[in-house]
Amino acid sequence: MIGNLIKGLTVVIILIGAIFSFISAIGLIRLPDLYTRAHASSKSATLGVLFILLGTFLFFIIEEQHFSTKLLLGIFFVFLTAPVSAHMICRCAYRSRVKLTETSIRDDLADCMCVEQGMSREGNDV
């Protein structure tokens, strides 16, 4: 009885993760530009994957008494690399001059960027 209840709880955790993934996919379609979409794909999607992997991890502990270190390592890896990949994508997008959406109200990076572009171009030439 209680075992069934706990099993149901892990499945509900997986469902929550799936809902988060779905919300971030909606965001990937609805949001206006790349930088706001990066918020959706770096936060909601990571949270969704973490919930699903956590649910799987707990399910295998309860159902099969199998403590999987590999899955734990996977959770840790996804958790650690998601912000880094979002940062890399945003940075390369800004460097390749992808425009911000029209409703943006502030851009502190624009004036600083000219100087830096010159610098990095020199660095590449050497």
């Binding site: 993934s21 790349l34 979409r37 999607a45 990571t46 969704g48 992997l53 799987t56 996804v78 992808v98």
Partner: peptide, 25 residues
């Protein structure tokens, strides 16, 4: 743009991980 597509690929990786996890159950 190209970075948009890279972002979608990144997200696709997460979703494939989720699918595999549910499939293992």
């Amino acid at each position: 743009s190209v970075p948009d597509r890279v972002q979608a690929l990144d997200m696709l990786g997460f979703l494939i991980i989720s699918t595999t996890a549910i499939f293992t159950i």
